[in-house]
Design a binder for these strands. Structure first.
Lengths: 203, 203
DNA sequence: CTTGAAGCGGAGCGGCCGCTCCGATTAGTC
DNA sequence: GACTAATCGGAGCGGCCGCTCCGCTTCAAG
């Protein structure tokens, strides 16, 4: 995992064993709590759920934002890696793109904090966005080379699409789980090279 | 306007003139402030911007949530009416649908509070959602009758689409304004009857 | 102009929440 | 077991924000 680099402070090996355990507990609990209630939850709730005092929590993460960022980064990075690996293992370029989106969105289904962070900044962090862009661009290029992608579609378009769909994933999570897949199918069909009409120009 | 019914307390005609003026000022200022900063802003900011004291604000709206609801309802209702009228005046069913979405999304472009409310509850209020559903359903039926709409597409699909795109409208508002139109075009192309593949079933 | 009731303003209360501080505890060493 | 430095825990501080309270102002009826 390359993402441990972003943690603050980084998990040094020379640390006491209980400290290491607590740190892990905090990250796990925070992941669940943020996903359930969004980034606005009381930090005390995270401390409670991880069985740790406030002092301990704040020694590991100097700021609530830092904790949120770390957690989000870990989660998103995991989802991204997973979706990317699956896509790489798929031969058909179009199915790879399809599977990538499906996997990525499935993974973050119901995670309030993740969607909020997309809404606020377009993603968990600049580095994360960059990684995501790279993945998407790779898949886009494969599709474009195979001639199955609608001409003029940019990596940015695909990135925005995933962000916008993650909104749908969240709002339909409780009432109509999985309905977002219909939107994904529709969008992907609109992205196929069957559609040759020009897209609105970038301002 | 049927939406004044939702205000609390309703603007009674027998009220003093200055009270009426203040009420209007509050609604207007709140609309701007909520749009700029989202539903989380300090109520004091709204009082300041409308040139009114806290007491006045809270006599007109017993609760911050009530104020937010009223404002959102007014705004959304206006946008919806506007988009609907424009769509009704368009003969071609497909262009009517296209124009409806374009107009609705353009109108709410950059309104943080509006997008938040979509994220939280799917819309400003149950009544508003109902109205929106009706509009969309009407347009959907016209397209379906004309045979230009992909088979199996539900009103719910179209509603979710608009909610998900409003997310894109917000995130691209500052860096790439108007880029969301590309996503809209893509989605609509995926919704045309040219695409006959079955959509994932509703769970 | 007088009068009384409707309306106004903003200081301030109470609760929530991010973060800190320091005495108690415990892991790890000899 | 003794020792010490790293770690822990949670009471509490300070600031933010929703909302209230009440003395002052203004409208409009007579």
């Amino acid at each position: 995992m390359t993402l441990a680099d972003h943690a603050t402070p980084a998990p040094r090996p020379g640390r006491r064993a209980d400290a290491e355990r607590n740190r892990a507990a905090i990250i796990e609990a925070a992941g669940k709590v943020f996903a359930e209630h969004g980034g606005g939850v009381d930090v005390r709730e995270i401390a409670r759920r991880s069985g740790v005092g406030m002092g301990t929590l704040y020694r590991h993460f100097p700021t609530k934002d830092e904790l949120l960022a770390t957690v989000l980064e870990r989660q998103f990075d995991g989802w991204l890696t997973d979706a990317h690996e699956q896509a790489m293992a798929t031969e058909d370029p179009w199915q790879a793109l399809d599977g990538f989106f499906d996997r990525l969105l499935t993974n973050q289904a119901g995670n309030r904090a993740a969607v909020e962070s997309f809404a606020a900044t377009g993603g968990p962090s600049a580095a994360c966005i960059q990684r995501c862009y790279s993945c998407i661009d790779q898949l886009r290029a494969r599709c474009a080379d195979a001639g199955v992608l609608r001409p003029g579609v940019t990596t940015d378009d695909l990135f925005q699409l995933s962000g916008s769909l993650s909104q749908a994933v969240l709002t339909t999570a409780e009432s109509h789980p999985g309905q977002w897949r219909r939107l994904l199918r529709i969008s992907l069909d609109g992205l196929s090279s069957r559609n040759t009409g020009p897209l609105p120009p970038l301002a």
